[in-house]
Amino acid sequence: MAKAFFIDTTLCTACRACQVACKQWHDLPAEETQNLGTHQNPPDLSDKTYKLVRMNERVIDGQLRWLFFPEQCRHCIEAPCLEALGDPAAIYRDPDTGAILYTRQTAQYDADAIIESCPYNIPRKGADGSVYKCDMCNDRVHNGLLPACVQACPTGAMNFGERDAMLEMANQRLAVVKAKYPQAMLLDPEYVSVIYLAAFPPENYHEFAIASRTPVGVTRHMALRKMVRPFAAALSRLG
């Protein structure tokens, strides 16, 4: 049975333990950053930053909200990156956990194309040409541990477990949260293994919080099925 995350943004305090715990477990170096007039840092995901708490100040219905969005790879159930690339040596799914995993073989491909294939704009190119992103702490999960980010989370914003259990938890929390935030919703729960609960419309959190719908009303899911095939055929290994 595949695993899933449930990320309840209404409980996130942006302590950013997840961000550091991810680096700690993966032995990732720090980035040299500057204060750009926001507490959020680094500004974006990178080959050294797989997890990033995005922070946005919004006035919604006349009330100030400080919205936190712990962003990471969604480990899509039908992952466009994987399907598009069609090379399990570079991108594959761990059938036990559902983790979408990238290998060094991604360096053999056009990184920008892999990044562009992601509806959530997650993967990033490293200096070695490989493409990097969250690996679900697949090693930990196989050993009965929680992903580092989930374990570090103090408030229960980050959760991890069997997909059914996470969906159930997500729906329960949604019902509770709706009483206070009527616009609350789960973000793309059918398509991803990282299910977010947002109190407000997703665009308030991040441009890529959800995979948007196409203008003709075709869902992303359907669009993917249509698009993936030609893409897979076209995307090829670099020389």
Partner: peptide
Amino acid sequence: QPWLMELQPQMF
């Protein structure tokens, strides 16, 4: 510590 400086690099 670089990991923490990454998050809050400067006096503000």
